[in-house]
Design a protein around this nucleic acid. Structure first.
Lengths: 360, 360
DNA sequence: TTGTAAGCGTTATCAC
DNA sequence: GTGATAACGCTTACAA
């Protein structure tokens, strides 16, 4: 049984160095008074210490310490018109796809004393627009967005406001927008080529919803192209679109594998779905890759957990995050944008093998 | 080879409805001018529409739309002294432990039109303090913190500033601090009791670093208590502390299992480490649970991926996130704090089984 | 090197 | 219902 208790406050802090207006933040003025200088001097101490004599600086810093002063961000942004803050808006935090890239993004920012703000959209375009407005309103100096599939009006807004944007995880040809990503279509195509070269003819794909997700669409397209090039009718591709989770991947795979015309190859839009697909196949008593091959996409840590490990596309997440940060930090308004295209590679772990005709 | 291109800007937006001061955000004043009302009226339209006549409201809203006006957060916070924003400071986004709880936290906030700000600390206490200050400076109306193991000075600061705090993922007895968590020690103890009842006598644990991590310490303590209660010298516990990742868990397990005195039971501080431990055991050709049993903690999605699935402690992450949001939203400064203790349960999936003496 | 003072974009308290 | 106007906490010319 869960328990909830009410508790009265047990003690009060022994007030030492209580700032003038108790119950709120101490302000620049409090510090100035404490150090008997002007607010301008305090501000300078914090922002460009070299402009202040060592003696006063010391006195001011002592006051800052004593009052535990922290500058008010809103006021600072209002006055300075920049925040040293960059926003990252990602579809979801619920799986590891973006975690590693974001981590790198954040690290690269903090090297230059900038901060990251994160927001997630749950793959909802309206929510994304709301989050973009939110971060803009919070004064973000630049934005990292995933993929470039959103209304032109959103880009217009950002251009109008003069806010640099970098599109990541995909390539973008939009004017005024930089990007750092990889060729999702090509990567998927290469993996499919490798798979089809192993003799598979009955192919299925478990994909994320392709609506308003250009990465998912590109990956699907890559597979279809590969099929065509290999003399297989792309219309024969059995496609299920679902949400990103192990469970969904499992359900989708089970549905496919129960069908009469059972696929010998299930290509998945990412590793999470692929892990689910492996589980699903096994739950039906099928061997992976003996009875059915499975491929992933992303190469996240979990790809090595399944048995066999996932054959998948390695995506340079960390490199991408780092590069995105550089692009935003080094942005000038020359109107020049950069397009950074990173390489992917295929990692073989065993979930994909030759199809032996007659075995299925 | 990775490729980088420079691209000149290709086109300019066909400027329609350009705000007065191009290149920046439109302001309240711009809207007021556009709608030929005062800034006060515009502000009221946005914050308490019922105080404005339908006619002017309509006109103002039209102007807002036309200029794509978004209120400046900093200015708003400065004037209103609240932000409707709550901060969540978590150790890491790099694994799924906190993702689900945060998601629920966020959802619960958005129901009441509040926003979540996330920051991560990489398990570094200094960085945590920095992030706390950061969110406070950004005007957070309340803070969600993980665990209660941090210097009293930090709590003093928060109390002084009048910022409500809720500690989650653990229970806290601090004055002036609410918490919503579960009994980490007890949960670990119960799992250990169940394991030891199966005959295990040579026990190892792979834990997160226990320094400045009260959850990890409590779980370790629970295991030791169980050992004592079951007549096993807790000093015999083979303990490895490491970072949270599958790879680390694997390495740690391999190290332990190569030892002369091989444990028959490896209890892990969380599922990520446990998944690694299972992999590690297998990489040595050992059977789980035949040769060695493994337990996890958390019950995240990945717990069902390993083979066998992880026997672990189920933690009500979503419930915790939701409750934390409620606590912060409903906070009044009566000095009453709530302690919400949630129940955990043991989920059996197969990685833990009876130890047959002589089999190892 | 330091101080003065004019904003920055809101909200809120008054009057009207 | 609506409009002035004084904060809010900070940065940054400009003066001294």
């Amino acid at each position: 049984m869960n328990r909830i208790f009410n508790r009265a406050i047990l003690g009060q802090t022994m007030g030492m160095n209580i700032p003038s207006r108790s119950g709120g933040q101490p302000t620049l003025e409090d510090v100035a008074r404490e150090a008997t200088v002007s607010t301008a001097t305090v501000s300078r101490c914090l922002n460009s210490p070299e402009q202040v004599s060592a003696k006063t600086r010391e006195r001011v810093m002592a006051a800052v310490e004593r009052l535990r002063y922290t500058p008010n961000f809103g006021a600072r942004a209002l006055a300075a018109k920049r925040t040293n803050t960059f926003g990252a808006i990602i579809p979801t935090m619920d799986n590891a796809i973006f975690a590693r890239g974001l981590q790198a993004f954040q690290e690269a920012l903090s090297v230059r004393n900038a901060t990251m703000l994160v927001a997630s959209t749950n793959y909802d375009p309206d929510l994304e627009e709301k989050q973009i407005r939110n971060l803009v309103a919070r004064g973000a100096d630049g934005l990292l967005l995933i993929g470039d599939d959103r209304p032109e009006a959103v880009y217009d807004l950002l251009r109008e406001r003069g806010i640099p944007v970098v599109v990541a995880w995909a390539l973008s040809e939009r004017p005024g927008v930089s990007c750092v990503g990889f060729d999702n279509r090509l990567a998927a195509r290469q993996l499919a080529d490798a798979a089809l070269a192993l003799g598979h003819r009955t192919v299925a794909m478990i994909s994320a919803h392709t609506k308003s997700n250009d990465r998912a669409r590109a990956r699907l397209e890559g597979i279809r192209q590969s099929m065509t090039a290999n003399g297989i009718d792309p219309k024969s591709l059995r496609l299920v679109e679902t949400n990103y989770s192990i469970k969904r991947g499992m359900e989708a795979a089970i549905g496919m594998l129960r069908d009469g015309q059972r696929p010998t190859l299930i290509m998945c839009g990412n590793d999470v779905l692929a892990a689910g697909a492996v589980m699903g196949a096994k739950s039906l008593g099928l061997d992976v890759p003996g009875d059915v091959s499975v491929t992933g996409f992303d190469d996240i840590e979990l790809a090595m957990l399944t048995e066999p490990g996932l054959t998948t596309v390695h995506v340079p997440h960390r490199q991408m995050g780092r590069a995105a940060a550089q692009l935003l930090l080094d942005h000038d308004d020359s109107g020049m944008n950069k397009l950074v295209c990173l390489d992917t590679s295929i990692v073989e772990r065993g979930s994909l093998s030759r199809h032996v005709p007659g075995s299925a």
